[in-house]
Design a protein around this nucleic acid. Structure first.
Lengths: 233, 233
DNA sequence: CGCGGGATTGAAGGGATTCAACCCATGTGG
DNA sequence: CCACATGGGTTGAATCCCTTCAATCCCGCG
């Protein structure tokens, strides 16, 4: 089916409200790619040429610090979400100063399917189509609000609160936890601490944990533990 | 002079590259206001009706946490900069869900002069004028990159490194320090710690400090102290 | 001269970090 | 079928930084 890319684009929140005609050209220019868990989509410092729409699977965008011993996950993007969407709109300040990715991106699930879109073309489309401009700008604004929330919880909340908030977000049903390393990167800490805190919650009886499958038992208590980290939801 | 607002708008980086005709309508709708140090521009939770262009003076945008005992300064905006620029572009998700400021804003200098622009009109203008859309989007992208830098340094660097980096940024000549409270809010900590670290740097001989006027004496050493927090500049 | 806001300093305590050891499940190859 | 390697996970202990509360100091100002 030749216009499947177009449908995918139309369903992405970044382009919400756009008319099919606005996206037809981009759909033609898009190229699909499929990666497996652990594979890198790009590295920090690479030149930005394209942006990626997740079709299936998920991608983690992260930065490394402390001489590589530590990672901070900025976003985890699932289907219909954009990777590097904001960066791709940075114009280069000078001809010799290339725009580069400010973070790394790696694939979390096998298989993960993506649509690669040329950054230049997307920019052009957004500038010249009011509906697209509106959607992109609104998307950026949402993104920034999310980043601020993230930043605030990292600065103001302690690890226990952040972990409790994380657990509450996914508490609908028992679900398998990511590895402690991944959790640590999400929460801005190290695997050891995640292990300790999880054990603490377990001993308190607010969660059940068996073979990495976790279930929230005492939601009020967990909400209490999340403190103000959860107050905003 | 009736078209002074227009000139101010034309000089703002947010609207860089715009044609005067694109901004004429906005200039007419703008209203000037003048505030003094300590006065609030808006509070978190207020409905977003306008965005502000700083003409003279400076404005601090910050969030409070830990039950009000602690503040985190997100940005300090000077002349030609926009306050609440990103938030003002958030469309309301539902008719009953107003868009509200996610942070507080207060004036740092007396006098601070601003131009208030109606959010709705600015949005419309940006959507329908390609040059404006381009400028606004580029501005958002830049802003997000800055936020990421900020977030990274808060997560990865220790207080001493952040303070050293801050001092280096302003090291061109001796200059008067803000109060310790303001510094603390910028660095994500409390005034006591700022005092301690400043004293430490002083005893190390890397800065001179007299009546709140600071001067970087040993720049290499300070760069060393800033560690990776300065490596990216 | 006393007042008040900010700055400094001390001390107690807690959370986070780091390094290291150990466990456990899985998978591989002899 | 077992030895072994591997990658997580868990736990302990030492240390460090940050936090918090409180006392004191300093300086400008009425």
């Amino acid at each position: 089916m030749p216009d499947r890319p177009l449908n995918l684009l139309l369903q992405a929140p970044v382009f919400r409200g756009a008319h099919p005609d606005d996206l037809r050209e981009l759909a033609v220019l898009s190229t699909p790619l499929s990666l497996r868990r652990g594979e890198a989509l790009f590295h920090a410092g690479d030149e930005v040429r394209s942006l990626y729409l997740v079709v299936r699977g998920s991608v983690r965008v992260y930065r490394v610090g402390r001489g590589g011993t530590r990672e901070l996950t900025l976003h985890v993007e699932g289907p219909r979400q954009l990777v590097s969407g904001v960066t791709a709109f940075q114009e280069q300040a000078a001809p010799e100063r290339l725009v580069t990715y400010p973070a790394h991106a790696e694939v979390l699930q096998t298989p993960t399917e993506l649509l690669s879109l040329p950054a230049q073309a997307v920019r052009e489309a957004a500038y010249h189509t009011p509906a697209l401009a509106q959607a992109v700008i609104a998307y950026f604004a949402r993104r920034q609000a999310e980043l601020l929330e993230r930043m605030e919880s990292l600065v103001f909340s302690e690890l226990g609160e952040r972990l409790a908030a994380y657990l509450l977000e996914h508490a609908a049903a028992p679900w398998p936890l990511p590895t402690n390393s991944e959790l640590a990167a999400l929460l801005g800490t190290v695997p050891e601490l995640v292990s300790r805190k999880l054990g603490e919650f377990y001993r308190l009886g607010v969660i059940r944990l068996e073979r990495r499958v976790v279930q929230v038992v005492d939601r009020p208590a967990l909400t209490e533990l999340a403190g103000q980290a959860a107050a905003r939801r």
